[in-house]
Amino acid sequence: MFSQSTLYFGTMDGHHKISISGVVFYVENECKNLLLNHLKFMHRNNTLQSENQFESGEERVAEILLEELKGGKDVVTCKELEAVINRTRNSR
């Protein structure tokens, strides 16, 4: 069974709490749909291959987000998401 990102609505003003591969991220309101759409896109493209491939792709997204947030940032912005999308767009 594949793991699915979990969305928790609105505990912080303008931010959403999203768990990706067991790691919790706070995502700006404007970027939430971009992230969820990218995860759905990755899942759709990997469905024909295997569920484990999606899990490793989701783990990669979490890993890249953690790298992007180094330096004391707490909230994922569109800038970090664009870096994730560019690095994972063609990964399969």
Score class of each variant (00 low, 15 high):
Val27Lys: 01
Glu63Pro: 02
Ser50Gln: 11
Gly14Asn: 15
Phe41Ile: 00
Thr11Arg: 07
Phe9Ile: 09
Ser56Asn: 07
Leu7Phe: 11
Glu80Asn: 12
Ser50Arg: 06
Leu48Ser: 10
Asp74Phe: 04
His16Phe: 15
Glu55Trp: 04
Ala83Lys: 00
Thr11Val: 14
Glu28Cys: 14
Met42Cys: 10
His43Trp: 09
Thr47Glu: 09
Asn37Phe: 10
Asn29Ser: 14
Gly72Arg: 00
Leu48Pro: 09
His43Thr: 03
Asn86Gly: 10
His38Pro: 01
Ile64Phe: 07
Tyr26Phe: 13
Thr88Tyr: 14
Cys78His: 08
Gly22Arg: 00
Asp74Arg: 12
Val76His: 10
Lys32Phe: 03
His38Asn: 02
Asn90Gln: 10
Lys79Cys: 02
Leu39Phe: 06
Thr77Gln: 07
Glu55His: 15
Arg87Trp: 03
Leu65Asp: 08
His38Arg: 02
Asn90Thr: 02
Phe25Gly: 02
Glu51Asn: 11
Val23Asp: 02
Phe2Tyr: 04
Asp74Ser: 13
Asn33Ser: 03
Met1Ser: 15
Lys17Asp: 09
Glu68Pro: 10
Glu51Arg: 04
Arg44His: 09
His15Asp: 01
Phe2Trp: 03
Asp13Ala: 09
Ser50Val: 04
Asn46Cys: 10
Val75His: 06
Leu34Ala: 10
Ile20Met: 13
Val76Met: 06
Gly22Gln: 01
Glu68Leu: 01
Glu30His: 07
Ala62His: 04
Cys78Lys: 13
Val76Phe: 02
Gln4Trp: 07
Asn33Cys: 01
Gln53Phe: 05
Val61Asp: 06
Tyr8Lys: 15
Asn45Pro: 00
Ser50Leu: 01
Leu36Pro: 13
Glu80Ile: 02
Ala62Ser: 15
Leu35Ala: 04
Leu39Glu: 02
His43Ile: 00
Lys40Tyr: 04
Lys73Leu: 15
Glu63Asn: 14
Glu58Trp: 01
Gly10Met: 03
Asn29Ala: 08
Leu65Asn: 04
Ala62Trp: 07
Lys79Leu: 05
Gln49Trp: 05
Ile20Leu: 14
Arg60Glu: 15
Glu68Gly: 00
Leu65Pro: 07
Leu36Trp: 05
Val75Thr: 13
Val84Leu: 08
Ser3Asp: 12
Ser5Asp: 03
Ala62Phe: 08
Thr6Cys: 09
Leu7Asn: 09
Leu36Asn: 11
Val24Gln: 14
Arg92Gly: 00
His16Cys: 07
Phe25Asn: 12
Asn45Ile: 06
Ser5Phe: 06
Val23His: 09
Ala62Ile: 13
Asn52Pro: 03
Ser19Arg: 00
Thr47Gly: 04
Ile18Met: 11
